[in-house]
Simulated assay, not measured.
Amino acid sequence: MTTTGTTSRTTTVADRLLDGPHGALPVRVYTPATTPVAGLVWAHGGGFARGDLDMHEADGVARGLAAAGVLVVSVDYRLVPPIDEDAARDGAGPGPMGVRGVRFPVPSEEVGFAFDWARGGAAGLDVAPDRWSIGGASAGGNLAAGASLRLRDAGTPVRSVVLAYPVAHYALPPHSDELAAKVAAVGGSFPPALVAAMNDNYLGHPDGPTSPYAFPGGRGVDDLRGLPPTFVLTSDTDGLRSSGEAYAAELAAAGVDVLLVREDGTRHGHLNQPDDPACARSIARLAAWLTTDALAGTSHEPPS
């Protein structure tokens, strides 16, 4: 493992290179100026194929949470090959996928590995093992949700899961009339053809997921029972809101403590829009969940 870093008045930022399950895995660690009250392993979004540690959804979110006392490990997981999104919107699919390139389960396993590394103590991070949460935004929310199932099945305690406008389902759940009207008014957002192409590209084939860790949404109560308390944050005018809302309902039906919040007046990816006051509001919501024990609840029934 190698380390480089910088320090500001409030947060120390250090880049580390881990010996991950699929080779070198870069992470960026944001340490608060005061003793951390919680830890979070965080995955940015980008349709599984885009994004990096410098985007606001990664760096800005991490800095905002660190200022609230949360030590954040931001994961630079491997990206799948990009697709032609314009063609995919028109129903052309993801294009040739072949057998080369990164596919599931590589990014999800890397996020889970980073959590084990952060929580395990060898990293030297000043957060107790029972204070670590895992989370992500959009496609990163998918990776965090899938990793939370894997960690549950491995018997690894997780304080909570935080998901911002996640891609929880392989097939996008139907929109409510209210959401459909809002999406239509802004010219469409994540049409089913684009979601299908993006998800097939992540899997590397068009045959759907065979592992529950790929797309946790849409599964039965027994598959989700025993997961950690989960905070689902959605964007108001966002076609993916139906996935976040459906996943929250599925978790609740499985006996998981859930907080579901819709950020009014926002579109998908609003954590990437620092000039929008809703971005700061959402970061404050995430910080409150991560640092306030009264909000998060507890894990209940073990998995069946």
Score class of each variant (00 low, 15 high):
A128E: 10
L125V: 07
R131D: 14
V72T: 07
S235F: 06
V258Q: 04
S211K: 01
P81R: 03
M55K: 00
V195D: 04
A193K: 01
P105N: 02
R262Q: 13
V261R: 11
R50G: 02
T266E: 01
H300R: 15
S299F: 12
E110P: 09
D200N: 09
S8Q: 13
P32K: 03
R262H: 09
T34P: 09
V73E: 03
H169G: 09
T2D: 15
G141S: 12
D52P: 04
L203A: 07
P107R: 01
T210A: 11
H270D: 00
G121Q: 10
D264W: 11
L240V: 10
P206H: 05
P229G: 05
A193Q: 12
V102W: 03
A43K: 04
A92M: 06
L227W: 04
P192K: 09
L240P: 04
F231C: 04
G255P: 11
P82L: 00
P274V: 05
D238G: 05
G91V: 09
T291H: 14
G93S: 02
A287F: 11
S138Q: 06
P302G: 11
T31D: 06
V232I: 14
L271G: 02
D19Q: 09
F215R: 05
R262P: 04
H44K: 08
A128K: 10
E110M: 10
R285I: 13
P303S: 06
V41Y: 07
V61F: 09
L172P: 07
G98F: 08
W42L: 08
L149F: 04
G51N: 04
R152F: 07
T266N: 02
P209G: 09
H268F: 08
E109C: 06
G69Y: 15
T7V: 15
I283S: 00
V162Q: 07
S138V: 13
T12K: 14
T11W: 07
E110N: 12
A196G: 02
D275R: 14
A184H: 08
V258E: 04
S299K: 15
G39H: 10
P81F: 04
N201Q: 07
G188W: 02
N199D: 09
A154T: 05
H268A: 08
L251N: 01
D153V: 08
A137P: 06
D84M: 05
A68T: 07
L17C: 13
I134P: 07
A137H: 13
P96A: 10
H22I: 01
D223I: 05
P174S: 03
R100Q: 13
A147T: 11
P32S: 03
A92E: 06
V258R: 00
S211D: 10
V75T: 05
G255K: 11
R50Y: 06
R89W: 08
A180N: 11
A246N: 11
L151T: 04
L251Q: 03
G120V: 14
E245G: 06
P216E: 06
L163Q: 10
H300N: 13
R159G: 05
A114V: 03
A197R: 00
P81G: 01
D275G: 10
V41I: 14
S189A: 03
P105T: 01
C279M: 08
V102G: 05
A193E: 12
A214F: 06
A68D: 12
R152I: 10
T7C: 12
A284H: 11
G255V: 13
A154G: 08
S8L: 15
G91W: 08
V73Y: 01
S133H: 11
V80P: 00
L240W: 00
V232D: 08
